[in-house]
């Protein structure tokens, strides 16, 4: 089970990487952490002609405090996110999510940006980015542009990153006073992709929800936000009735796919269970 032959190019600067992408077009793939890409190459599910390795580009890794937000460099390894004090302090949702990503050896190599750019609908970080209104920083030969998370995920493994562009980082607004996060996923085994998971963020006035966002992963072809269900929470506190209302609303709002572990109806059911288990405690219930 060896990959088909490919050429390997190590980019030393962002410009270098962008010009390699420009040169090779569709034949090239970016090699970030490689924890998904390498597996697909080994299985010959994909056979690019050229891999452009962006691991050695200075400045693409690291977590910086930019005032109201944290900028997480695309090449920041999951394990560095996991142990970051800045993340723990300002992005508790990310902190809660990151150690659910695979296993230590994968987290040592896999990157924050790689997870976002790969846009696996079952992955944790894209859903968190949606729930947090993150901003994606995308570089091209013509400069850098920003795309809000809500516009970034366009479909199954599809994002707003255009051919020839590279995701350079993600800005996560710092959690503000009165806001709380919630995260939970249901995976058959620790580190597996979840059957379904939830990333939630809400502002609280006492125990009353405001501006709630619920984003599910492995519930569609991309991270799935459920604004109609979230709206039921706003201005309300937690109750058993609320749990039932949310579950009923989620059954209408979600249209999750079938796979080997679960079908759509099971995912809808579990979405309601997750809402109850995450949102109740967030409200202090």
């Amino acid at each position: 089970m060896k990959p088909a032959p490919f050429a390997y190019a190590k980019a030393s600067t962002l410009e270098d990487a962008l010009s390699l992408l420009a040169e090779h077009g569709d034949d090239a793939r970016i090699l970030a952490g490689g924890q998904s890409l390498m597996a697909t190459l080994n299985m010959r599910l994909s056979a690019p002609q050229v891999l452009v390795d962006i691991n050695r580009i200075d400045g693409l890794a690291g977590i910086n405090d930019t005032g109201d937000a944290l900028r997480i460099g695309a090449m920041t390894r999951h394990s560095d996110v996991e142990t970051s004090d800045l993340i723990a302090q300002h992005a508790p949702l990310i902190a809660a999510a990151v150690d659910h990503i695979a296993h230590p050896a994968i987290r040592n190599r896999g990157t924050f940006g790689g997870s976002i750019a790969f846009a696996d609908p079952a992955a944790e970080l894209p859903a968190c980015a949606m729930a947090l209104d993150a901003t994606m920083h995308i570089a091209g030969l013509n400069g850098e542009r920003d795309v809000p998370a809500a516009d970034f995920f366009e479909g199954l493994y599809e994002t707003a990153i255009q051919p020839g562009e590279i995701l350079t980082g993600v800005s996560i607004p710092k959690i503000a006073d009165g806001w709380k996060s919630g995260f939970m996923e249901l995976a058959r085994r620790r580190g597996d992709y979840a059957i379904i998971g939830i990333a939630a963020q809400a502002k609280f006035d006492g125990s009353t929800f405001g501006d709630a966002r619920l984003v599910y992963f492995n519930a569609g072809d991309r991270p799935v936000s459920t604004p109609q269900t979230a709206a039921l929470l706003n201005g309300q506190g937690w109750s058993d009735d609320m749990a039932e209302k949310l579950a009923a609303s989620l059954k209408r709002e979600l249209d999750p796919p079938d796979d080997l572990n679960a079908d759509g109806p099971m995912r809808k059911h579990l979405a309601g269970v997750l809402a109850k288990r995450v949102l109740g405690p967030m409200a202090g219930a």
């Binding site: 058959r188 059957i195 572990n261 679960a262 099971m266 059911h269």
Partner: peptide
């Protein structure tokens, strides 16, 4: 005994 089968047995789905 998968979660799916358990939920089916319990008539949850």
């Amino acid at each position: 005994f998968t979660p799916k089968k358990v939920l089916q047995a319990l008539n949850k789905i």
